[in-house]
Nucleic acid binder design. Structure first.
Lengths: 111, 111
DNA sequence: CCTATGGTTAACGAGTTCGTTAATTAACGA
DNA sequence: TCGTTAATTAACGAACTCGTTAACCATAGG
C-alpha cells in the first residue's frame, strides 16, 4: 500500500516523458504548457506526469495567476544516486585512485 | 512498444523486492531458492522478478544441473547513475547555497 | 524407471499506469 | 459580465504489473 520512497522515485524516473521533463527543468522553471509543447500528448497527460514527479519530490510547484510554475528539486535524484553508489565499486575499473586513497589513509590520516 | 533501455532499468529498480535481490547478489552469486528464502512470496513470483532483472541487464544467469545461478551485472546501474550525474552539480549547487544561507543566519540575521 | 528437487510456464485476478476526450475551475482583462 | 487562457479533474479503456495456485520441464540419483 504505502510505497517506499525509493520505489516512488525510481518509478517516476521509469518514464521517458518524465525524464525529458526533468531535463527541461534543469534549464530553469517552466509552466505546464511550456513543458507540454515538445510532446505530442495531451495536456491532461502532462498534468498527470507532473503530479507523479511532484509526489516523488522531484519537482515543486507554485502558482501565479493562472500559471503553475514547475521547479526541479534534485534531492530525490541524490537519494537514488546514493543507493546506487553502493554498487559503484563493482563497475569502477579505475581502482588505482581508490587504492592510493586507502593507502594514504593507512599511512597517516593527518591531512 | 519497444521500451528504451533506461526506462527498463529504472522500472526494474522501482520494486523493493528486486532491489533487495540485487543487494543480496552484491555479496555473491546465489540460486533462485537462496534468493527467495528471505521473502514471504512464492517461488514463481521470485522467478518473474529475476526475469525482469535479467531483461534489464542487471543480472546474468547460468545453469548447472537443476540450479540456476544468478550474478549481479552492474553495467545498467552505471548507466542509470550516469544519467543522474547530469543533475549532480544541481544538487551540489543547492547544498552550497543552503550552506551559505545557514552560515548567514548563524552569523547574524541582519542581512 | 521412479521419485525428489529446483525452477519455470500457464492461467487468472486485483490493482496500477498511461493515454484519451469532455467537463470544470481559476484568474486575467476588455 | 463575458470570453479567453491555463490547468486540473472526471470518466473511461487498453495494457501492464505483481501476486496467487496448478501444472510442467529438467536433472540427479537410487
Amino acid at each position: 500500500m504505502t510505497e517506499d520512497r525509493l520505489s516512488t522515485i525510481f518509478a517516476a524516473l521509469a518514464d521517458p516523458t518524465r525524464r525529458a521533463i526533468l531535463a527541461r527543468l534543469a534549464d530553469g522553471e517552466a509552466t505546464v504548457s511550456e513543458l507540454a509543447e515538445p510532446f505530442s500528448i495531451s495536456l491532461p497527460a502532462i498534468s498527470r506526469h507532473l503530479k507523479v514527479l511532484e509526489h516523488a519530490g522531484l519537482i515543486s510547484r507554485s502558482r501565479s495567476a493562472q500559471w503553475r510554475s514547475n521547479r526541479l528539486e534534485p534531492g530525490p535524484l541524490r537519494e537514488a544516486t546514493e543507493w546506487m553508489e553502493r554498487y559503484r565499486h563493482f563497475w569502477d575499473v579505475n581502482l588505482t585512485r581508490l587504492d592510493a586513497h586507502l593507502k594514504r589513509l593507512q599511512e597517516g590520516p593527518s591531512s
